[in-house]
Write a protein that binds this DNA or RNA. Structure first.
Lengths: 95, 95
DNA sequence: TTAATTGCTACACTTTTTGTAGCATTGCTT
DNA sequence: AAGCAATGCTACAAAAAGTGTAGCAATTAA
């Protein structure tokens, strides 16, 4: 993956969200800010290496930010999260 | 990943979509059915091994199906795809 | 019967992720 | 000030996943 960082916004987004744990991390942030270790626990104890890398990527895209209260959605990230939360309804209906 | 296949629908979905290329594959299917090699080309020439595994997982979840005309969304998959297409608008606005 | 196209597998190599330990910094608390 | 717990994060060897290339088996077309 990450062959040559496409410049198209949608491709950059799909590249980022298409990495392992990325979607799950965003999903687990839905209840508000939380710290690194808490988030890690919520993500089935994903390795800190992976969590750290994913968070870095999500921060670079401006989806996640790191404040005193912990990791949380950025304003733009909130909008994106709204769309991801719809996946829940889909899953409950079709899976 | 794929530690112990959670039974919750949303987790099964996030597990599947959280694999490399899964989102991208769904994205590239938006223009209608296409065959394996065409899809592979659209996905930056992802390896056939990966493409095949992802397609298998997406088919097992009932998101994608394989007809004479090629790989395409299932009826349920169409609904999901509708939601994923919204990512495009988000990306164009915020990235 | 030959040739082309299909989905897909084999396999050695590379990249990514994992799991565990622990470091460095910050902010208590005594 | 000294100890201590909590924080984000890094190191590193082992395991897992992905890659790239070749090519197989089945189907269709010529």
């Amino acid at each position: 993956m990450s062959e040559k960082t496409s410049s198209r916004p949608i491709m950059r987004l799909l590249d980022a969200l298409g990495q392992k744990w990325a979607l799950r991390i965003l999903w687990e942030l839905r209840d508000g800010p939380m710290n690194f270790r808490h988030l890690q626990a919520r993500c089935d104890d994903v390795s800190p290496t992976s969590l750290n890398r994913r968070l870095k990527e999500l921060r670079e895209l401006g989806i996640v930010e790191h404040e005193e209260s912990g990791f949380q959605y950025s304003p733009a990230g909130k909008v994106l999260a709204q769309q991801l939360l719809q996946l829940h309804q889909w899953a409950d209906r079709y899976l």
